[in-house]
Design a protein around this nucleic acid. Structure first.
Length: 603
DNA sequence: TTAGGGTTAG
């Protein structure tokens, strides 16, 4: 008794004894007299103030015996306090769905009525671990007690549960069930569509929301903009931007970032840049949106400039930044900078798995360092379909077909299912190595074994495979039997085959078809002109060049680039931009002369 | 005491 009096006097002591009692409740000391402990326990709960002091709460949350806790709470004189304590505890479970549901059940068993606070907490915990079955049990209670119809928090957390579990139609059903809805209900439903891949429906729901005279807030704006980014619809994006301005939606850093992302994904880099420049507050995501957005638009140099600027003002890059930078390095051939990023990753002890690892493999492969790419690939603890595809495509591009196919054959053993892009790599490998029989088998396996439907790109690879091997008739037959309309890639591949094998008449026919699907490009003219030249049909070649000129179609000049000491030098036919171009041309002449001499000797 | 937010790879 003395101990009890003491502990009710001092908060700190209360805290201590409280903790001790709950340590027992948590299953710690079995030798103590359980009866006495229960008395102490009950006393503490009766005198405990609400909310519970954090150490006590922490102990209860970690207790295995939530049933015992409810049993004790049941005997409190003040039942409202008991419910409050339960709510406090369920909140502190911090998204642990299983324990939240256990406590919820124990509450019911011990005669408590979970209220409009308990239910959203438990549903939130279920959402966090996608525990749909448990969530549905809680829903049943919420329906029975009328909470779903009367409390918008309950309704919204339920929409969210179905959303994160991928049940779009149920989320919509809960939303529709009553007219009880606020801006969070609408936003959660819109987000449900976006997260589950229905961007168009998300936008339509936003329009419905506007018709219902519900005003969007900054969170709605962010989600609707992300839907628009996925659609790449600039006209819509501008409309949404106008909506934000007209309705004075508070524009915080999230809205700014979403706008930058939207404009870039919709192909308007200038507007994205303008928004970015005018943002009063930026964070690392703002920079990431701009850097990766520019890289995805093919503006790799601008992306790299922004990365340098970001560094110069001391913003620390994160995983997202590094992936965007590696992507730009890969496409610009910036091996040295790519290596620097790799060293940075090592220095910061960032794990090179998943996105970062895959981006490194791709960067090394695209920059010509295939052995380094392979080393990173081998060193990855956790490889996925992206990792395999990156290395297979890399090896295929480097002419290492056998290695590429060997890695492909390793995938089933590792439990990784190839996807459509993996097969592009596999078929490219076959095509470059002239492996016709293997290529045909892989193409067949795509649908028969892996249940993947070949797309135009795969037919393009097969046309290329047959074409390179001189099997022009087989290539034509495949095109005739394609389930979709042949596009420019298909005709381009066949025309390429005509060039290799000198098929002038067929080439003329294919060129017409290529021009039908791609009239403004130079590819068809250039290839056909080469076919004529190879067949010594100079007049036809000249005629074609004139026709091209008449239609104002210019040949896209081929471009090579070399990185030296971190600087990229680009070379185009006839280009004189390099400060030492005179020396370069002189050396080129010397090389050509050596080659000619070598050829003469060989003959 | 309670619900909804942006950026990454082949």
């Amino acid at each position: 008794m003395f101990m009890l009096i003491c502990m009710s006097s001092y908060w700190a002591t209360t805290n201590y004894v409280n903790s001790q009692a709950f340590r027992v409740a948590a299953g710690g000391t079995k030798t103590d007299n359980i009866k006495n402990l229960r008395q102490i326990h009950a006393f503490i709960l009766k005198t405990a103030s609400f909310p519970l002091p954090p150490p006590t709460l922490e102990l209860i949350s970690s207790s295995r015996n939530l049933g015992y806790l409810c049993f004790i709470l049941k005997h409190l004189e003040n039942q409202d306090l008991g419910l409050d304590i339960c709510n406090d505890i369920v909140r502190s479970l911090n998204g642990n769905s299983l324990r939240a549901v256990v406590l919820f059940r124990e509450m019911l068993v011990n005669g408590f009525r979970p209220d409009n606070y308990t239910v959203p907490y438990v549903l939130k915990a279920c959402s966090k671990s996608q525990a749909l079955r448990e969530g549905v049990q809680v829903q049943a209670y919420a329906v029975k007690t009328g909470l779903v119809l009367s409390n918008v928090y309950v309704k919204n957390t339920l929409i969210r549960l179905y959303s994160v579990c991928g049940s779009v139609s149920y989320a919509r059903k809960v939303f529709e069930e009553s007219s009880l809805r606020d801006v969070v209900s609408w936003t959660t439903l819109i987000q449900c569509y976006v997260k589950n891949g229905f961007a168009r429906e998300a936008i339509l729901t936003f329009f419905e929301m506007c018709d219902a005279k519900m005003k969007a807030d900054e969170m709605t704006a962010v989600i609707v903009l992300s839907a628009c980014s996925k659609l790449g619809d600039l006209k819509l994006g501008r409309k949404l931007h106008d909506y934000i301005l007209d309705n004075r939606v508070p524009s915080d850093v999230y809205v700014g970032n979403a706008l930058v992302d939207m404009y870039l994904k919709c192909g308007d880099a200038n507007s994205a840049r303008k928004i970015f420049d005018e943002m009063p507050v930026r964070n690392v995501v703002s920079w990431n949106s701009l850097i990766s957005g520019l890289a995805n638009q093919g503006e790799f140099k601008d992306a790299m400039d922004m990365f340098r600027k970001m560094q110069s003002i001391g913003v620390e890059p994160d995983d997202f930044t590094l992936v965007g930078v590696l992507n730009s390095c890969a496409n610009l051939g910036l091996l040295e900078l790519g290596k620097w990023v790799h060293a940075y990753i090592d220095r910061k002890q960032i794990e090179a798995d998943r996105f970062i690892g895959n981006a490194l493999v791709d960067m090394y492969a695209k920059c010509g360092a295939i052995d380094q790419a392979f080393k990173v690939f081998r060193g990855m603890k956790c490889r996925d379909v992206y990792s395999y595809t990156a290395i297979i495509i890399g090896l295929a591009m480097h002419g290492e077909a056998k290695r590429a196919l060997s890695i492909f054959s390793d995938m089933p053993r590792r439990g990784i299912k190839p996807d459509e892009v993996t097969f592009i790599g596999v078929l490219t490998a076959c095509s470059h190595a002239g492996l016709v029989v293997e290529g045909k088998r892989y193409f067949k396996d795509m649908s028969c074994v892996y249940n993947l439907r070949p797309q135009t790109e795969h037919y393009g690879c097969m046309v290329d495979l047959f074409g390179r091997a001189g099997l022009i008739e087989e290539a034509q037959e495949l095109i005739e039997n394609m389930p979709m309309e042949p596009d420019a890639y298909i005709w381009g591949a066949l025309l390429g085959a005509c060039r290799i094998h000198g098929c002038v008449e067929l080439g003329e026919d294919v060129m017409k078809k290529l021009l039908k699907v791609e009239p403004e490009r130079d590819g068809a003219y250039v290839l056909m002109s080469n076919i004529y030249s190879s067949a010594n049909k100079w007049r036809d070649a000249v005629k074609l060049r004139k026709e091209m000129k008449g239609k104002n179609i210019k040949k896209t000049p081929g471009c090579s680039s070399i990185e030296l000491d971190g600087v990229v030098y680009e070379f185009r036919k006839g280009g004189k931009s390099h400060p030492r171009s005179k020396e370069i041309y002189k050396l080129l002449e010397e090389i050509m002369s050596h080659i000619k001499n070598f050829n003469n000797l060989a003959q």
